[in-house]
Amino acid sequence: MELRATGITHKYDDLTALEAVDLHAREGEILALIGPSGCGKSTLLGILGGLLQPSEGRVEMQGALPEGCLNPLTYVFQDFALLPWRSVRGNVRLPLEHHQLTSDERRERVEDALARTGLTDFAGAYVRQLSGGMRQRVGIARALAVKPAVLLMDEPLSALDAQTRNLLMEDFVGLWLREKLTAVYVTHNLDEALRLAHRVVVLSRRPGRVREEIIIDVPLDERQGTAGLLELAPLRERLWALIRDEAQTAELELADV
């Protein structure tokens, strides 16, 4: 399935957060949204999944849903949004509980999602017992359990330390190589975009507009090691040049929103 947003404008009172943004998430592709803080990228993701009502513009789903899909547009949150009073398994089961499924099918989906994220041995643990990286794995497992058409990932690795972030990126690459997920991946981290995305949409500072769309045609499994990094280096320069000035301006701004 594809997700297409046209002419998205969003205003908070008199502050324009997004202006005339067009976006197209293609099937089996990871689309990264990057931009300096306060460029409205999380707002845009909220609009894409129907959690926020845009002031103008519309978002459309096009094409058939994958088989067994219970929640086409599924989020992975920056703060994980796990229920601390439920075990890992309970959290993964949560989005299945209000659907008409046989208990066998429900169990199968939960165990399958846990296995795909390497959580089977932690299924009975409470959230507080898990490290940050494991918590986000639970967030991803929960998303996989509903067999989403498009994953909407809101800075999923921003709350994690650098090592954990690398580990999770590797996991996610592995997941994508196996299942060719469609995802919109919001981040402010260039490295994440360069590692995971097939296309990168750079947003400008407030009001957020699409500044540029860059295609990264290096396959995901060839982006590591010296050769991969070398190949990506010019792109990295170009992306950094695009967001550098705006990031600096954003950095110096006083928060008064």
Binding site: G49, N71, F77, D79, A81, L83
Partner: peptide
């Protein structure tokens, strides 16, 4: 109760009753 948990519930189309009693 963290707003993010409620938004999570909504993002999975949980019915309001479920959001109240489970979240």
């Amino acid at each position: 109760v963290a707003r993010s948990l409620i938004r999570m519930g909504q993002s999975f189309d949980m019915p309001t009753r479920d959001i109240v009693f489970k979240v």
